[in-house]
Structures are given as structure tokens and as C-alpha cells.
């Protein structure tokens, strides 16, 4: 088992403490406070999405392709309207983004080059990305290496971390919307150029 980076351990420890004793850890550990606040912002997003979804006609289960497409379009539209003023860094705020960047870089650095390249091999090339953009339809969803995923803050179902270009994207996987992103988390040294 690969040893965790000190910062990753801090973040995971913070998760444990905030989930258990919580507030005490928050008062003494600024990383824990940042992680806890990140979790709250994600939860606020999920609550917003649920409010939007409640106003829609859900597709029957199982659904036709047309029902699925209609629901996704309406959900994405509703979320965009509710978050029309959303901007990059609203969820990955300045106090938490460096932690993600460091965890990812430490993980990739701990791999040999072949493994590191494999970890980002599916990542699509350079793209212009913005909050509230849809996931590009023709691009694959690059797999986050599971051992790296285990080091990141757990997310509720329906919200995912994905790599796109060199960036870490927070993706609403039902609406296929980019909720937020941290740019340039993948160092160019392990980036397979197109």
C-alpha cells in the first residue's frame, strides 16, 4: 500500500474528526475547517439540485432515451438558472483548492512515470472550460485512479471528481454540468501531450 502524503493524511484525518467529534477539530485545525466548509458547499449544491429536480417531471423507470434526454436538459437548465452567478472557485475556494492540487500532485509524483501516465492517459487534451458548461458530449470521462480517489474528500452520489484537460472538475453527473474546477492540477511533467 502506498503511503499517504502528509497533507492527504491531514485531509483524511480532518474528515474523520469532522464526521465524528467535528467542531473541536475545526477550531484547532485550519485544514479541517476548510475541508468541512468544502463539504458544506457541496451539500448546498446538492440541495439546490434537489430543489430544481423536484420541480421537474422525472422520467419513468426504466426510461426511454427521449425521457432521459428531456430530464437532463431541464435539470441542467434549471441548475444553470439557479446558479447563474456561480463562478470558478465558489466551491473549490482559495483555501481548499491548493489542498486538492497538492494531494493530486503528491499522488502522481509517488507513481513511477508509466503508472502516472496511465493514470491520466484518458484525459482529454486542452479545452476551454467554464463553470456551468456541459461536459463535452464527445469526450470520454477520464477515470480518476481509484487510489487517488480514495484520498479525496468523499462526495455524495451524483457529484464526481473528473479530470478534464489538466484540470480537476467537479461534475454533476446527472445534469452533466461542470459545477466548479481547479485548474492545472496535473503537472505538465506527467501530461501525455496530444
Amino acid at each position: 500500500m502506498r503511503p499517504r502524503s502528509p497533507l492527504a493524511s491531514t485531509v483524511l484525518l480532518a474528515l474523520v474528526t469532522t464526521a465524528g467529534a467535528g467542531l473541536h477539530a475545526q477550531s484547532v485545525n485550519p485544514d479541517a475547517a476548510a475541508v468541512k466548509a468544502f463539504g458544506e458547499r457541496v451539500k448546498a449544491y446538492v440541495d439546490l439540485r434537489q430543489r430544481v429536480a423536484q420541480g421537474l417531471v422525472h422520467p419513468a423507470m426504466p426510461a426511454t432515451a427521449a425521457e432521459i434526454e428531456r430530464f437532463k436538459r431541464q435539470l441542467a437548465q434549471g441548475i444553470r438558472e439557479e446558479r447563474r452567478s456561480a463562478k470558478e472557485g465558489d466551491i473549490f475556494t482559495a483555501d481548499i483548492a491548493p489542498q486538492f492540487r497538492e494531494i493530486i500532485r503528491a499522488d502522481l509524483k509517488s507513481r513511477d512515470m508509466e503508472d502516472a501516465l496511465a493514470a491520466v492517459a484518458e484525459v482529454s487534451p486542452r479545452l476551454a472550460l467554464y463553470v456551468n458548461d456541459p461536459w463535452p458530449r464527445d469526450l470520454p470521462r477520464a477515470t480518476i485512479p481509484p487510489r487517488l480517489l480514495a484520498r479525496l474528500h468523499p462526495l455524495p452520489e451524483g457529484v464526481e471528481y473528473r479530470f478534464l484537460s489538466r484540470h480537476l472538475v467537479l461534475l454533476d453527473s446527472d445534469a452533466d454540468l461542470i459545477i466548479d474546477l481547479v485548474r492545472n492540477v496535473i503537472p505538465s511533467s506527467v501530461r501525455r501531450e496530444p
Partner: peptide, 18 residues
């Protein structure tokens, strides 16, 4: 797969039960 949108899990033809 990595080319599939996750909402395929609702699609009747794929029997994924959501």
C-alpha cells in the same frame, strides 16, 4: 464505460435499475 453518460443507468434497454 468511459464514453458513457451516467444517466444511461436509467435507460430501459440496459436494465441497470437506475
Amino acid at each position: 464505460g468511459n464514453h458513457d453518460a451516467q444517466d444511461q443507468r436509467f435507460y430501459k434497454g440496459f436494465n441497470m435499475g437506475g
